[in-house]
Design a protein around this nucleic acid. Structure first.
Lengths: 337, 337
DNA sequence: TTGTATGCGTTATCAG
DNA sequence: CTGATAACGCATACAA
């Protein structure tokens, strides 16, 4: 590998001058500049980023930690795509680290990015507790932002979507149309998101004086198969329902498929609502409505905050997003039990 | 940030000794070792990887370049998941760089990873020509492997799936069952994969003396929507077919949906085959059969080769994979025109 | 406008 | 077994 020193010698100048023309900092004569560029060209010189970043005390990189249980599916793809795009638009590079599938591995991933001297970090945690995250943020000088969690202490360091309110609004839409027997397929209940969507469902019913019936609730695992299984369980129980809320789109797909297979028409007999995290799920028969989580906007806010903090800025406000109910047809169905 | 020097002072030893206990290279007394560990603990010391990698002349990282047009969908997720897993199993870290959507941006991404001094690189190219890739490989000392392309010169540096043979085999399966009017939805024809799958279709027909009819071929764009549109186009043309091959699963999903919407039964009236790149596509009505591309195995072979080369190994063989036809039911259908 | 010298935080080579 | 000390490749304050 040819170094800056070799370029300098070939151009008949010092390393410092080469460094100057490359960084644009400091004055350098027009003629010398050209000689340097020529030498760079001829030698095929490439800067060693390790050395540069070590000396400059900045890497111009943002680190992102995501659990690989999120890798499958379009949600992750969109997340990564926009995060990378936003970061590069701001003249930085994104570095991804795998949070694997445990709190300890999430810790290690964060540590790795920190050891690499990323200027700032984004965490999309799945196993780490909010308390520990707060501790981590306090323990480091690098700006750290957290996606999809509501922090207690560093509240301006997190960007989340109010899953409960979002779920509540979706269920209320059904209630407003006269539905009373509303089934619910949960997400994994070891995830906060899964729990919050469930409690939104509960609260909506309570607010409208509709009893919460446990036989209308089944636990899913975010996958299409678990959506199918959920419907099968409901049918086995012999419970009747005119509407069904699935906690994400994949499960809605599976649920609709299972309903069809059982000879139940959607949406004529059962209205289905999914959580359309990304809005590009390949539905064959789309649900009646979907709740769209504004991932893109959330990422944007996250990166913006991070870079603002890198420039010494401070935030006092706490950004909360809320999902939007997207109708794919009329929801004006009465109960069809 | 506390440095190695501070740890050394606190432990009453030299930097060199601290470095030794950390790396495990060289002898160091049991008692001294413990003092060093204690000092590390107390000071919360973390190694600066920039400095370490600069001095050690190795980063223990593999770089991966992928075009972001691949980000959407499960194919990319699987690719990334396994690449990261394999890399870490071998004690390295994977660094992802975005190839964006042009040859020039793919070049830049490769260059960035090289500048970061990744020990080796994996490229999943979409716009770069094989000739240029060969040139790039020749121009660098770092091992470089290419996925999904068949290189002319550095043939042992690429791992690909013979898309043409794979497609050919799928179509022959249909021909063997008596199908003669076989429609085909292509992928994007600016991609080699899309073209190869199409030429496999063509050759299968030719081999069996069946005329290739252009009205049975429609161009898709890999998306579910383009699969639906493809079927719509075929129906508008008024052309009759008893079987349909979609060049990937997303399009197969769209196509099946459109067939259903038009009152055509699958598989009773039309047999559908997709290319099940990952085999976890959320089908509501699965196609009759899918061609499974062995991505996992391909990634595994790629990483293995790279690390073998890092250890000074050389390859002479050229690994070619071939898709496997997965039947989801009987294909013993006659023509249903 | 350019060169010199020092530092960035490690690894690694030699003495001792 | 341990400690100086020279790289590693570049940025930058300070001189000239």
């Amino acid at each position: 590998m040819t170094t800056m020193l070799e370029v300098a010698k070939r151009a008949g100048v010092s390393k410092a001058t080469v460094s100057r023309v490359l960084s644009g900092n400091g004055y350098v004569g027009q003629e010398t500049r050209e000689r340097v560029f020529k030498a760079i060209e001829e030698s095929g010189y490439r800067p060693n980023l390790l050395a540069r970043n070590l000396a400059a005390k900045t890497t111009q990189t943002l680190g992102l930690v995501v659990t690989n249980t999120l890798y499958h599916g379009v949600y992750f793809s969109e997340l990564l795509f926009h995060a990378a795009r936003m970061t590069e638009d701001r003249g930085r590079q994104l570095i991804l680290a795998d949070g694997k599938h445990s709190a300890d591995e999430e810790r290690q991933a964060i540590q790795y990015l920190l050891d690499l001297r990323c200027d700032a970090i984004v965490i999309y945690p799945r196993f780490l507790s909010v308390d520990e995250i707060d501790t981590i943020i306090d323990g480091h000088t690098q700006p750290i932002m957290v996606l999809n969690r509501r922090l207690r202490k560093n509240s301006s360091h997190c960007v989340y979507c109010d899953q409960k309110s979002t779920s509540l609004a979706a269920v209320e839409t059904l209630l407003a149309q006269g539905h009373r027997d509303i089934a619910f397929i949960t997400g994994s209940l070891d995830s906060p998101t899964g729990n919050e969507r469930l409690s939104g469902y509960r609260e909506a019913l309570e607010r409208h004086g509709v009893a919460v019936r446990n036989e209308l609730i089944v636990e899913g695992k975010w996958t299409p198969a678990s959506g199918s299984a959920g419907v099968a369980t409901l049918l086995e129980r012999g419970v009747r329902f005119s509407a069904l809320v699935a906690s994400n789109d994949d499960m809605a797909i599976g649920a609709i498929s299972q309903l069809h297979g059982s000879g139940i028409a959607v949406p004529e007999q059962v209205s289905v609502i999914g959580f359309d995290d990304i809005a590009i799920a390949p539905y064959t028969v789309p649900p009646l409505a979907s709740v769209k989580i504004p991932v893109t906007e959330m990422i944007k806010e996250t990166i913006n905050r991070l870079i603002f903090m890198l420039d010494g800025g401070e935030f006092t406000t706490q950004p909360a997003f809320i999902g939007e109910l997207i109708l794919r047809g009329s929801v004006s169905h009465g109960p069809h039990i």
